[in-house]
Design a protein around this nucleic acid. Sequence first.
DNA 1: CGGCCGGTTCACCGCTTCTTCACCGGCGCT
DNA 2: AGCGCCGGTGAAGAAGCGGTGAACCGGCCG
Lengths: 128, 128
Amino acid sequence: MRSEDDAIHVGALEIHPSEGLVLAGGRALKLSVREFSLLVALARNRGAIVRREDLFAQAWHDELRPGDRSIDVYVHKLRVKLEQALPDLAFIHTHVGFGYRLAPEPLGRPSASPPFHISAAPEPQAGA
Amino acid sequence: MRSEDDAIHVGALEIHPSEGLVLAGGRALKLSVREFSLLVALARNRGAIVRREDLFAQAWHDELRPGDRSIDVYVHKLRVKLEQALPDLAFIHTHVGFGYRLAPEPLGRPSASPPFHISAAPEPQAGA
DNA sequence: CGGCCGGTTCACCGCTTCTTCACCGGCGCT
DNA sequence: AGCGCCGGTGAAGAAGCGGTGAACCGGCCG
């Protein structure tokens, strides 16, 4: 009750950066420190595409070295846990060559009427 | 007796901080002073993740020294007594790297049956 | 005086977490 | 068609953190 002032809401996700707590549909998620940091970094820029370097800087407090795949691994871990908590929504979206974007979108086609429009994003949906 | 104003309810737990009394499913628990203080500290922040330093400050009224494992030991003692009183619920949850959280949750993995209701606004946030 | 009880500290151990590697499929480019 | 870039994913290995039983201590009560 006291910790809602700093909560970030992303769809059914409720993130409390200062507490290390994430509620998914009301249920507490069990995230590791890294997973949580990464989610917070994405959440602070929710709706926008965040570059890998920025994510690493915000979540690892260090500089991303070439060849480091840590972010990919943790994005995957986060996706797994989020999907298991909220199976009907996709939260973390990949923008190849740009970075990741956090937003609650229904599975399947996120393009019926996307609230976002990316100017130069090459959407990989063009079926051959 | 009926000081309900200061009673903290956590699932089947009923905690009376000012009386030193804890009822688990109606039965009184026999807790030591430390155990009780720790439980109260957790209960006052129920649902939230409480850092070890904060728990120690609230329950021991002292500053947690590095390497002090007292909290771990007492969390364990509490878990044993709580589990023996209410075998079907887990109350104290560990969040590695963050702290502990008090909340009644069914054993196993929280999957498709939330222990509590949360009116998480399922906003598809499409409109805009 | 001896036993009991609660609190603290210690030691060991198992699970969790983090990092890195390897492999794969998709895609654009040559 | 072949190649290289990029991200997805599973796994291995090492390190960190927390769980747990027991020893150790001091106070209290019988």
